[in-house]
Amino acid sequence: MSLPQPVPPSWKDLGKSSNDLLSRDYPIGFVQLEVKTSTPSNVAFKVSGKNNDKTQVIDGDIEAKYTNKPHGVVLTQAWTTSNLVRTTLEAENHLAKGLKFDLNTILAGNGSAKSAALTSVYKQPGLHTRAVLDLFKGPTLTADTVIGRDGFLLGAEAAYNVTEGKVTRYAAAAGFSAPEYAVTLQALNNLNTFSASYYHRVSTDVEAGAKATYDTKATTQGVNLEVGVKSYLDSAAFVKAKISNTGILGLGYTQALRPGVRTSFGLALDTNRLNEATPSGPAHKFGASITFEG
């Protein structure tokens, strides 16, 4: 008798473990402050601001999120410094168990831009499928499905432009996921970009991962490779390091100062230019992030 199958990850979460290892907790090239609070009435607030070194522009937004768990409804609304209003309405387990609907809208304060997308997600043991209808772009219908059994995963995605009557994007993926490690192979961008990633929890204190990407449409042929590792110093701090085949070394350090207060620092170095007296260019960047949560 086979064991009950878990719900597989969504299409966008395939390879998430390795992607998070190689991209998260590296605040490089910006300084960010984020404050999260919640109320007893199930309303959560988030205020964030980011100063980008490249654009020298401070971007920020304020977000309010109301959750009604008994009725499976979540309403989120945010207002950004770009004068955009984002609204998301989520409803889950109403028509059927495992079925979720999302309505996401974006409206500019001056009415110059707008978007709306209706998303349906259906999750069952061994199946995770999603359909997104972008009402203003196309309209375009995007569907993806991931099936899983005994750790093996197969997924596919396709986008169909309703007005033009043709498929505009398609992709496929395969992988294997276990509690200690995961391997993912993806063919994206109409099967023109190929990537392979792996994640391995070596021990309770050490995680390792890598990702290789090959783009058949790139002007410079070759495989881009990135390798990273994460090590917990104690229960409140960890360090991360990654390096790519182009010689860019990334370093990250995250420390929980107290419950609800976390700070992260990131550094990127071009190892090919370490001997320069005054390093410059897109590498050699520093950044920091502070998060308050209560």
Rank of each mutant, 00 (worst) to 15 (best):
V183K: 00
A117I: 15
S115H: 10
T271V: 05
S235E: 15
V223F: 07
G228E: 00
I62L: 12
A78H: 04
R273D: 15
S115E: 10
K97P: 09
L225H: 01
Q56I: 09
A277C: 09
V121L: 12
S48E: 14
W79D: 07
G155P: 05
L269T: 00
L251V: 04
T119R: 09
L185R: 05
A283Y: 04
S197G: 11
Q32A: 12
K36Q: 13
L153D: 01
G155A: 05
A268N: 14
R262Q: 12
L107Q: 09
L33E: 06
A96S: 13
S82Y: 04
D61L: 07
N51H: 12
S48D: 11
S17I: 14
L33A: 10
E207A: 09
A44S: 15
L274V: 14
D53A: 15
S48T: 15
R273W: 08
G294D: 10
L191G: 02
T76Y: 01
D61Q: 09
A288D: 05
S2N: 15
A91Q: 13
T80P: 05
L89T: 06
V57F: 00
L127E: 03
Q124Y: 07
V57L: 01
N42Q: 10
V85S: 03
G294K: 14
V146P: 04
G281D: 02
V227H: 05
G98M: 07
N51Y: 12
F30L: 05
D134M: 15
A143Y: 11
Y199R: 03
T119H: 06
P9C: 04
S23L: 08
V261K: 10
K54F: 10
H200G: 08
R169E: 15
E90Y: 04
T213P: 02
Y199E: 03
G60K: 02
A156M: 13
K65T: 12
G209V: 07
E92D: 11
E34F: 08
F101R: 03
G175D: 03
Y198P: 00
S244N: 13
A108C: 02
Y122I: 07
Y122R: 05
P279V: 06
F101P: 00
L75M: 10
P279S: 09
S10E: 07
N42C: 06
V85T: 11
G287D: 00
A268F: 11
L141N: 02
P4I: 01
G260H: 03
S41H: 14
A171D: 06
N224C: 13
A237K: 06
G228V: 00
L267M: 06
T246P: 03
V206E: 08
Q255K: 07
T88M: 15
G15E: 03
A158I: 03
G111C: 01
K230R: 08
L127P: 02
A187G: 08
T88P: 14
I106Q: 05
A187C: 03
K137Y: 07
T271G: 02
E164C: 10
T140D: 03
A218S: 09
F286Y: 07
V229I: 13
S120A: 11
L3W: 14
Q124V: 15
L249K: 02
A288N: 05
S17H: 15
T219K: 13
N83H: 07
F194S: 06
V146N: 03
G49A: 00
H71S: 12
K242A: 11
G222W: 02
G151D: 01
T142V: 03
G247T: 01
L75E: 09
D25C: 04
K217M: 08
